[in-house]
């Protein structure tokens, strides 16, 4: 079965109010193309989850497309902060639920295993848990029937959609991730997994290299081929992050006004991700950030001053 579709077509079936698990990690394999397309199609009331927040969620929260966002912390690394999310927390303009990375990863793992909850010893005693305990559907304290000890039970998370960005997939949706695989549980927990990939490979390639498959096609609902889909973030071994573009975003997201102007110009003002990349980074920017394969990034490039 051929699961390859246009990104805009896949996004068009996602209803307002949908629950979506997002897979990026700070500046690597972030779902920027997907988030921007959600915005272009004016989706709203989204319920988002990401173990580690990135620019994708910051864009969606800042643009008012989100009803509730659960995350385990996040930033733009040394470039800056997710200030649209941060402001929403302080001003309480959007419901933001803060976990630790592991607590949310365990909720995805419970969803992946199809079990109602997982006991853990993290988060106990923190102000994070104090807040989260207000919603008994997410977390509760409980006693282990085996050792009689107290644990935090985190409930399973199976969002309607999971969305990750990866290096490769075949048309059946066998997914190849190179580098660390922090988002396996996020991907597998969702009822429908959408993957944006840099490159489509043949099923024959997969059949001859099955050890490369990190997520088999049984999970995959749709595949969209979106070159540089994580831009301005990086995709390991394909392209580096664009430090100037991230620095620019880390500046504009500090106020709603400059953020709104950014979204208007670069997202609403472009038809697709290829146009977005060219507008943000200039024509040919991808040639300047293409990864050196022996390293996975642009060797020798100075990214911090």
């Amino acid at each position: 079965m051929n699961k390859v579709r246009e990104l805009s077509d896949i996004v068009s079936e996602i209803p307002n109010g949908a629950e979506i698990g997002l897979g990026g990690f700070i500046i690597n394999r972030c779902g920027i193309a997907f988030a921007a397309e959600l915005l272009r199609q004016r989706k709203k009331d989204l319920v988002l989850y990401s173990m580690m927040g990135t620019m994708d969620a910051d864009l969606l929260v800042g643009a008012g497309a989100v009803k509730s966002y659960s995350y385990g912390g996040g930033s733009l690394d040394r470039f800056g902060r997710l200030d649209r999310v941060n402001e929403a927390i302080v001003k309480k303009t959007t419901e933001i639920k803060e976990y630790s990375g592991l607590a949310l990863a365990l909720r995805f793992l419970a969803g992946t295993l199809g079990i109602p909850f997982i006991p853990t010893k993290t988060l106990i005693g923190t102000d994070l848990l104090e807040e989260l305990m207000k919603d008994k559907d997410c977390v509760q304290m409980g006693t282990s029937p085996f050792d009689g000890d107290q644990y935090l039970f985190v409930s399973k998370l199976q969002p309607e959609y999971s969305v990750i960005h990866a290096q490769m997939a075949d048309e059946k949706g066998n997914i190849v991730i190179e580098g660390p695989t922090w988002d396996l549980e996020t991907a597998k927990a969702g009822k429908k997994l959408i993957v944006t990939v840099e490159q489509l490979v043949s099923n024959e390639y997969i059949k001859r290299n099955p050890e490369k498959v990190t997520i088999p096609s049984v999970y995959t609902y749709a595949v969209a081929v979106v070159p540089a889909g994580a831009y301005p973030g990086a995709t390991h071994k394909v392209y580096d992050y664009d430090d100037q573009a991230l620095r620019q975003y880390a500046k504009v997201n500090q106020s709603q006004e400059t953020f709104d102007a950014y979204v208007k110009e670069y997202i609403y003002g472009t038809k697709n991700h290829a146009e977005f990349i060219e507008k943000v980074g200039g024509a040919g920017v991808l040639n300047t950030i293409r990864a050196d394969l022996a390293y996975g990034y642009v060797k020798g490039k100075v990214v911090l001053s």
Binding site: M52, G53, Y71, G72, G73, G74, S75, R81, V85, N86, E87, I89, V90, E98, Y99, S100, G101, L102, A103, T122, L123, T126, L128
Partner: peptide, 11 residues
Amino acid sequence: RHFTGSGGAAD
């Protein structure tokens, strides 16, 4: 003012 949050710190 809100900053990064936990990440793996609480864990």
